[in-house]
Design a protein around this nucleic acid. Sequence first.
DNA 1: CTGTTAGCGCCTTCAG
DNA 2: CTGAAGGCGCTAACAG
Lengths: 348, 348
Amino acid sequence: MESAEDQGLDATPTRRAALTVKDIARAAEVSPMTVSRVLSGGKNVRPALREHVEQVIADLGYHRNENARSLRPGQRSGLVGVLITNIGNPYYAGVVQGIEQVVGATGRRILVATTNEDGDLERQLLSDFLGRQVEGLIVVPVGQDGERFAAARRNDVPLVLASRTVASVAADAVLIDDVRGAHEATTLMLEAGHRRIAFLGNKVSVSTGQRRLRGFRGAFADHGSVPDEDLVVLGLQDTATAETAMRELLGTPDRPTAVFAANNRISIGAIRAIAKATADGSLETPPHLSAFDSFDFADMAPIPLSVIDHDPSELGRVAARMLLSRMDGSADGAAPRLVELPVHLVHH
Amino acid sequence: MESAEDQGLDATPTRRAALTVKDIARAAEVSPMTVSRVLSGGKNVRPALREHVEQVIADLGYHRNENARSLRPGQRSGLVGVLITNIGNPYYAGVVQGIEQVVGATGRRILVATTNEDGDLERQLLSDFLGRQVEGLIVVPVGQDGERFAAARRNDVPLVLASRTVASVAADAVLIDDVRGAHEATTLMLEAGHRRIAFLGNKVSVSTGQRRLRGFRGAFADHGSVPDEDLVVLGLQDTATAETAMRELLGTPDRPTAVFAANNRISIGAIRAIAKATADGSLETPPHLSAFDSFDFADMAPIPLSVIDHDPSELGRVAARMLLSRMDGSADGAAPRLVELPVHLVHH
DNA sequence: CTGTTAGCGCCTTCAG
DNA sequence: CTGAAGGCGCTAACAG
C-alpha cells in the first residue's frame, strides 16, 4: 500500500486541536485568567484590554469548551435529556418542540434520542444521558418497568414523565386528560343513540391506552350499559394494523355504528378503511368516528368525525417547566406532581 | 422566614455531587485506574477483580462522566449538533428521526435546537454547539448568509446542509430533487391541457422555494409557454396564509384551473380553501392540485391531487451518513458533495 | 496485573 | 486590575 506520509504524521485523520484559552492568551499577550474573565462578562478587566481580547477571540474563532467548564464543581452541564418513543410521530415532534422552546430559553440544550418502544434501549439511553451529565430528564416511557429509572433517582437527576406514566415510579408527570376525553367522546356517541361502538386501541402496556379504555368503559358504565367486547380491539401499532382491524370490523354482519380510535395513527387507519369501504360500495352509511389526538386534515376527513384534540407542544412546555422547577430547586421537597392537560372535543 | 438549617448546610439547592471513579475505587478497595480499566472493557484486569468492581459500580449506580472523559486529547465528544428550522413540522421531524437513527447507531447522541427561521438565533446556536464540542453539524439553514458557518469551518467541524443549501457555503448537502419534481408535476398539468396554473410558494430566500419555482418555470419554457405571473404567489408562511391566498385566487374572474403548491403546509391551506369553496357552492369544478411534500391523509384529500412525495427520514439518514464520513476521515479531502434525492409522483 | 503521575480546558481562590 | 497555583473526572504513559 502507499505510504501515509502525504497525509500527515499520524494515522488518525488530521484534525486541528480546538483552540483553548491558552491560545487566546498567547495571541492577545495576556494570561489565560484574563481571557477567562473576558469570557465570563469582562468584569474586573480594563475595558481596552477586554476589547482587545474580544477581538482576538473573534478573529481566531474561539469557542469556550463548555464540557471542560462544566467539569468544575457546582457548574451545570446545561444539558437536558429527552427520550421519546418515536420522533417521527408528529405528535411527539410537537412535544419535543415545546420542550425545546422552554428549555432553550434558559440557554440549555436538549439531547434527543428515540427508544423505538424498546425497553432495553430505553435503559441504555438513560444511562448514556446520565453519563453525559444531563441536569434533568424528560421521558415518554416505554413500558411499566420502573427499575429503569432507579439510576436517575439515585443520581438525583430530576425526571418528568411525559404523555405516559409508570405506575411504580414516583415522578412528576404531565398527561393528557385521557380518561375524561375518552369518557366525554364516548358519552356523546351513546347519547346520539349509538350502542355498537368499537374501541380501537394500542398496546395496553402503554398507560395512555389503558386510560383511554378506562374512559370508554366508564362512559358505558355511567350510561348503565356495557360495551360489546367483540368490538374492543387492542394492540394496534400503526395505521396499517388499524386499517386492517377496521376493515375486519366492517366486514362483520353486525358492524359497529360508531368507532372510538385511541390515537391519531389508529384514526388515520380507521378512516382509510371506512373511506375505502364507502368508495367501493360495500358500506352505505359510514360509522361515526371519535378520534383521540388530532392530525393534519382532521377538518377534511371524508366521514363524520369527532376529534379529541389537545396540544402536544403545550404538553412539552409544561413538562419542561416542571423539570426546570426541580432543577433550580424551587420545587425542592415537593411530592410528585401530576398535571392532566385538558382536551377539546371538536366536531367535523 | 424559617431557618434553612433543616435543608442542609449551604444555600444552594441540595444536590448530591455525582459519583466519581475515586468513589468507586474507594468502595471497591482498588485504585481509580483499575476502575477506569474496568469501565473501558476490563482488559488487563483480573477477572475476579473486574467482576467485583462491576458489582460496586452497579450497586452504587455510577455512570462515567463523558464530559470529563472527552476532555482528554484525541477523545471525541460523541455529540452531533442538529439545527432545524422547526421540529414541530412533521417533515423536519422525519428528518431528525433519520439523523438520530444513523447517528445513534454509532453510539453518538444528537443535540437538537430550533432556529425558528431566525438567522441571528442560528448563528448563536451554532456557536453554542461548537462550545459543546460537537463532532459535526447537520443544519437546515435559515437564509443565504454563509458567514454564519465560518466559525464551524475554522474549527474544522464537519457540516452537512440538509434540505436547503446556502450558495456561499461549500459544504456537503442533501437536497430533494426539487427542480425535477416541480418540473415533472408541472409538465403533467400542462400535458393535461392546463394553462392557467397557479404557483403558491414560500419565501424566495429559502433555496427549496427557489428551486421549485425554477422547475415550475422550466416546465413552461420546455413547453414553449410562460406562466401567468398574476398566478404566482410567493412568501406564504403557513397553512393560514396559503388558505387566504388560494381563496383570493379562486375569487378572481379568471381563476386558475390547476395549482402548484410548493410545500405541505401550503398544500393543506390550499386544499382547505378549495374544499370550502366547493362546499359552499361558489366553486363548481375544483382546480387540480399538485403538491410538493406529502402529508397524512394525502390519499383522502377531497379534491384531485398529485403529490410530489419524498422521504424525510431518508434525507436525514443520508445527511447523517455524509457527516459521519467526514467525521471519521473516510471522506477526507473530498470536494463538497451534493446529493439530490429522488421524488415520486403519486396521483390521488 | 495493578498503581502512580501528569495533564486535558477551565475557573475559584488567593497574591500581587 | 492582573496573574499564579491548584483541582474538577478521567485515562495515557510509565513504573512496579
